[in-house]
Computed example of a mutant assay.
Amino acid sequence: MSPSDALAQFKSYIQLEKNYSEHTVREYESDLLYFFGFLQSEGINNLHDVEYIHARLYVTKLYDESLSRTSISRKISAIRSFFKFCNREFGLKEEAFRSLYHPKKEERLPHFFYEEELQQIFQATEGEDHMSLRNRAILELLYATGIRVSELTSLEEFDIDKQLGILRVMGKGRKERYVPFGQFAQDALEHFMDEARPKLMKQSKHNFVFTNMRGQPLTPRGVRYILSDLVKKASLHTKIYPHMLRHTFATHLLNNGADLRTVQELLGHSHLSSTQVYTHVTKEHLRKTYMNAHPRA
């Protein structure tokens, strides 16, 4: 069986039956093509010839390339899913990767903004021009809801209930959830949609809420650029990545008394363990506050 034929059928399966997002499908394809390249370099052209020793050699190669443990774990998961599919559909042996252990994840705490830092970034969006109104709406909504950037750029007009202050969000694995947002986000969103968006949309026709300055749908890369530019304007000596606002949303909620289950539901996490990392962040926040504030610390 040729790897390319099996990959084409696997892609159809995860797109149509598993409802994986385009981004996830691209990642799976990229991971598998990289693995196929390794097999070719080992002189293996048939998937039936893959053994446990090849799996071990491949993982060793990934470590030699200094990839993070998270990246290696993701690649193993993609290959396992592929072999499981091929086992069910074509009787391919799947033991080679099933026997591998996932590398232990690095214990890294999520980075987040303190409220003072966030206020400086909000100040960088001040202005009544189209760009400022759009950027403020993006920042307010990301912080108010904790949604992922891919979820933000996928938002359409009918996903927003302005009366109830609720977003309908399509998350990972095409899972739908509803997320509330507050008055600050509502005001910024309405201001953008009433004043700036109609003028930006003169040359375009689509239902996506956020656009670039030419009226085309905004991309996740575009949002990353916008946020980096705001951090520069705010003169903060830090790097920003979009997930920092998601981390900030969760951390601030927990610091102010929200329970873990509620935060899990708002973030759209399938497992509570994914949300529990934020309890470590809040404990670290308490420790730093204590060390800075107590006279005998």
Rank of each mutant, 00 (worst) to 15 (best):
Q163I: 12
K75M: 12
E95F: 03
I138K: 02
L62A: 02
H237E: 15
L155H: 04
I240W: 01
F208S: 09
A96I: 04
H271L: 11
N45K: 12
A96G: 03
R88V: 08
V223I: 14
Q216S: 12
N255H: 10
S273F: 06
L109T: 08
A293K: 02
V281N: 02
T248N: 04
S73V: 04
R26V: 12
L142P: 04
L227V: 05
E89V: 13
A234I: 09
M193Q: 11
S154R: 08
E115Y: 07
L33N: 13
E89H: 08
E27G: 13
V277E: 01
G146H: 04
L253S: 08
K18M: 14
R246V: 08
A234M: 10
Y28R: 06
D229Q: 15
M213Y: 09
L100Q: 03
L155I: 11
A185M: 07
F208H: 14
R56V: 11
K199S: 09
L7A: 01
G37H: 07
H54E: 06
L286E: 09
E265A: 11
G43P: 05
H48A: 13
K202F: 06
E265H: 12
G222A: 11
F158P: 01
L152A: 06
S81K: 00
Q120A: 12
I79F: 01
K11G: 02
L57A: 15
P217H: 07
E115P: 00
Y225H: 13
F181A: 03
L33E: 13
K288C: 04
P220L: 07
A196G: 02
L142C: 05
N256I: 09
Q216M: 12
E65V: 03
L92E: 03
A297I: 09
P103W: 00
H252I: 09
R80G: 02
R221M: 11
E22F: 13
M213R: 12
K75F: 00
E265F: 06
R69T: 12
K233P: 04
S77P: 00
N19T: 04
F90T: 10
L152R: 03
N207W: 07
E176K: 08
Y143N: 07
G37V: 03
N19E: 09
R26N: 14
Q216N: 14
P217A: 10
N207T: 12
S150C: 08
E115S: 11
L155K: 06
G268S: 05
